[in-house]
């Protein structure tokens, strides 16, 4: 009897149940599809020159945007954001050579990022290259 049992054990086939594998795989796909969120943020592109700090003053012709609190100045003349957009569009910066596209962006202490962002967006959207003006630390 013992011999018979051992023989039967040896002959027994081991099978791995693979019938439900495709179901599991499709469930995983559905999980990935449901759990995935496709995030596409909205942004503005600003390529600020990484150049060395210049101690010499820029030429008078370089357009300058100045932010003082909530006020915007373009070449020392106060204006609204819409007017700034118009003035920058009139310069047709995108058609100029890269070195002539520079627009200086100067801001007073405490200027909120909202105002800064709008000025940065206006300059970039009109083809300008933003150069940040840093006040000298005493």
């Amino acid at each position: 009897m013992r011999k018979k049992l051992s023989r039967e054990k040896k002959n027994r086939e081991i099978t791995i149940p693979t019938d439900s594998f495709s179901d599991i795989a499709f469930l995983l796909i559905i999980y990935f599809l449901v759990a995935t969120t496709l995030v596409k943020v909205k942004s503005i592109t600003a390529d600020l020159p990484a150049g060395e700090k210049s101690t010499t003053a820029q030429s008078d012709k370089t357009p300058t945007v100045n932010l003082r609190g909530s006020e915007i100045f373009f070449n020392d003349k106060g204006l609204t954001l819409e007017a700034l957009n118009e003035r920058l569009a009139a310069l047709e910066l995108a058609t100029l050579e890269p070195e002539k596209r520079v627009v200086m962006l100067e801001s007073a202490a405490g200027t909120p990022y909202q105002n800064y962002f709008q000025a940065l967006a206006a300059i970039s959207a009109n083809g300008g290259v933003v150069a940040l003006v840093e006040n000298e630390k005493k």
């Binding site: 600020l48 202490a109 405490g110 909120p112 990022y113 800064y116 962002f117 940040l132």
Partner: peptide, 17 residues
């Protein structure tokens, strides 16, 4: 954040540049 003052964000912008 839109409300942050220049002192917080400008050094970071300059660092990236």
């Amino acid at each position: 954040d839109a409300s942050l003052p220049k002192e917080n964000f400008e050094p970071v912008l300059q660092a990236i540049a």
